[in-house]
Amino acid sequence: MHIAILTITFSLIGCRSLKEKRQRMGGLHARFGNTPSVAVCESGERDRHEASEWTFVIIGLSKRDIESQCSQIEEKLEHGVDARMVKVEREFI
């Protein structure tokens, strides 16, 4: 069993409220949290309007599978949220 922790920090340029932030970042739990091998949460920058940090914990049988899932998550986020990824960190346990 292998585990990866993927932490992504986003910049939400021009975001003026927490409500707007939720709308722009909305749906991450629904999109990724339903996958049995992925857990997701907003892990930082909760009170800032123009930033957001999300952490994904991915579990798999091989490191290669986990790396593939991390890449898929990053790609979907790059095109699926109204924000810019400014920092991506991967940690394997």
Rank of each mutant, 00 (worst) to 15 (best):
M1V: 13
M1S: 15
H2S: 09
H2Y: 12
H2C: 13
H2L: 05
I3C: 10
A4T: 06
I5A: 13
I5L: 15
L6W: 03
L6T: 04
L6C: 03
T7M: 12
I8Y: 02
T9L: 06
T9M: 03
T9E: 15
T9K: 15
T9S: 13
S11V: 02
I13L: 13
G14H: 09
G14C: 12
C15S: 13
C15L: 05
C15G: 07
C15P: 05
R16M: 07
R16G: 06
L18H: 02
L18N: 03
L18P: 03
K19G: 06
K19W: 00
E20L: 05
R22D: 06
Q23V: 06
R24Y: 08
M25Y: 08
M25P: 07
G26Q: 08
G26A: 11
G27A: 12
G27F: 09
L28C: 06
L28F: 11
L28I: 15
L28P: 04
H29M: 13
H29V: 12
H29P: 00
A30T: 10
R31Q: 12
R31P: 02
F32Q: 08
N34H: 15
S37A: 14
V38C: 05
V38K: 08
A39C: 11
A39H: 06
A39V: 09
C41T: 14
E42Y: 14
S43E: 02
G44S: 14
E45I: 00
R46Y: 00
R46L: 15
R46E: 04
R46H: 11
R48E: 08
H49D: 13
H49T: 09
E50L: 04
E50F: 03
A51T: 07
A51L: 15
A51S: 14
S52A: 15
S52V: 00
S52N: 12
S52Q: 06
E53N: 01
W54D: 00
T55R: 07
T55N: 02
F56M: 09
V57N: 02
V57R: 07
I58Q: 06
I58W: 00
I59D: 00
G60V: 11
G60L: 10
L61Y: 05
S62A: 05
R64V: 09
R64W: 02
D65K: 09
D65V: 07
I66P: 05
I66R: 09
E67W: 01
S68T: 14
Q69S: 10
Q69V: 14
C70I: 01
C70K: 03
S71R: 15
S71L: 11
S71C: 04
Q72R: 15
I73R: 05
E75Q: 15
E75K: 15
K76C: 04
L77T: 03
E78W: 12
H79E: 08
G80S: 08
G80A: 10
D82K: 09
D82A: 11
A83N: 08
A83I: 07
M85I: 15
M85L: 09
M85F: 05
V86Y: 02
V86N: 05
V86F: 02
V86A: 11
K87I: 00
K87E: 12
R90I: 01
E91A: 12
E91H: 11
E91N: 10
F92T: 06
F92E: 04
F92N: 01
F92Q: 03
I93A: 13
I93W: 09
I93V: 14
